[in-house]
């Protein structure tokens, strides 16, 4: 997986990771809006999810409906490659941050 992760992709994946079993588009969008402060449309979230799935970073499965939501739903989880890509992205960011002397930068 030579292609690096985009900013939005990282955020969506982090959302998937946080939501666990219940990760679906609506929940992710909610997190992005409320936690990350990013306003993105539902369509954009899903397109991102589809792209990530194409790259094998997330995997979706269809669950039959339960409770009040009596319709099948597609839920997402990170694949091993997905976790790897996410931690790689974080590590490269961290390395860059580590080399930055915060005090120096401010002067």
């Amino acid at each position: 997986m030579s292609e690096t992760l985009g900013d939005l992709q990282q955020l969506v994946m982090l959302g998937v990771a946080q939501l666990g079993e219940e990760a679906f588009g609506g929940g992710i969008q909610h997190l992005l809006e409320t936690v990350a402060g990013r306003a993105v449309s539902v369509g954009t979230v899903y397109v991102t999810l589809v792209r990530l799935e194409e790259r094998g970073l997330v995997r979706s499965s269809v669950r039959s409906g339960q409770g009040s939501v009596g319709r099948p739903r597609r839920t997402y989880r990170l694949t091993d490659e997905g976790w790897q890509a996410l931690t790689d992205a974080k590590a490269s960011l961290d390395r860059m941050w580590d080399r930055l002397d915060v005090g120096e930068a401010r002067t």
């Binding site: 588009g25 609506g26 099948p72």
Partner: peptide
Amino acid sequence: PADYGNDVALSLELAAAR
């Protein structure tokens, strides 16, 4: 497809509620 359609509808409903 049906499953995506449902999820998107639900997500939209959630976003609209906010």
